[in-house]
Design a protein around this nucleic acid. Structure first.
Lengths: 160, 160
DNA sequence: ACCTGAACACCGTTCAAGT
DNA sequence: ACCTGAACACCGTTCAAGT
């Protein structure tokens, strides 16, 4: 198949969900796509940009489930679910959100819907909490408090 | 000087504050300490354990400033300040907190003082928010909302 | 006990050169 | 326009061997 930013993103997400961030290298990605590592750099500036592409795609999945009129708490729970389906999804979205917040915020949690304080506050919290949750499970440590607390806290943060 | 876990930690924090996480490699660390890379592994199991040592040390600085009876909001702001003094401090503490939460939670924000929900909720939020803040400034992107919002949100999360 | 030296199996990125 | 091949400057970790 023709190498494109899209096919690179798809394969990267596949490696991610199967092996995790530690195995997602440009060289590994190239091997999976049966091209030389250098070929990737014609389609993608660098690894950072790849992360933004990954985060954008994860976000699109959330938007497909939850339009901008959705209940924010439901959107947060959907976001968490998507992040959990990809190993280290939260860590990647944390990076992507840092670089390009607008492209990586679900519509139902956007600044225009919730206001800046609630939107940024909620995003920082979800991404922080799920990153910790995923790190923990990667180390085989039991979760301290999973999704219930996230819903509760999100509701609180909507008042900010 | 004699190579110890402490001297390794100190030098690692020094590299961190001067060059950031990208330059904190075991090899670089060894070069700075004037030993072979393999020498580090007699004192430290692996790089993950080093991160826990770094996080524990940062936490100790917060505890020195804010005892367990301190105002939680003040402790959060002190934690943020410490994290900001070390480049990528939040990212490292996020990892350390995932592995060993008790060793990496400031006394004033501990489970025994605030309860599980508030303690974990606040820690997830601070670490998420400051990681984003540090990532952003590393990319030369202007901060969206710095410390003020953090204080406000922390106050809200104390009610959880 | 503590460290060296050498090795293993990797990285991200660049760039001339090919088609 | 799109990709290969080779190179550059690195990684984390292990392990026999030295002192």
């Amino acid at each position: 198949m023709a190498l494109t930013a899209e096919s690179i993103t798809t394969t990267a997400l596949d490696i991610l969900s199967r092996y995790g961030l530690g195995d997602l290298s440009m060289r590994r990605l190239a091997r999976e796509l049966e091209v030389q590592p250098s070929a990737l750099y014609w389609h993608v500036k660098d690894k950072q940009e790849l992360f933004v592409l990954l985060a954008t795609r994860m976000n699109a999945v959330v938007d497909a489930r939850c339009p901008s009129t959705s209940d924010p708490v439901a959107a947060v729970m959907a976001l968490r679910e998507i992040l959990l389906t990809y190993r280290d999804g939260a860590e990647i979205m944390l990076l992507g959100y840092s670089i390009a917040p607008e492209r990586v915020t679900p519509a139902a949690l956007s600044v225009s819907v919730l206001g800046a304080s609630a939107s940024h506050g909620i995003m920082a919290h979800v991404l922080g909490a799920v990153t910790i949750e995923q790190n923990r499970s990667a180390f085989g440590i039991a979760a301290v408090g999973p999704g219930e607390r996230l819903a509760e806290i999100t509701a609180k943060l909507l008042e900010v």
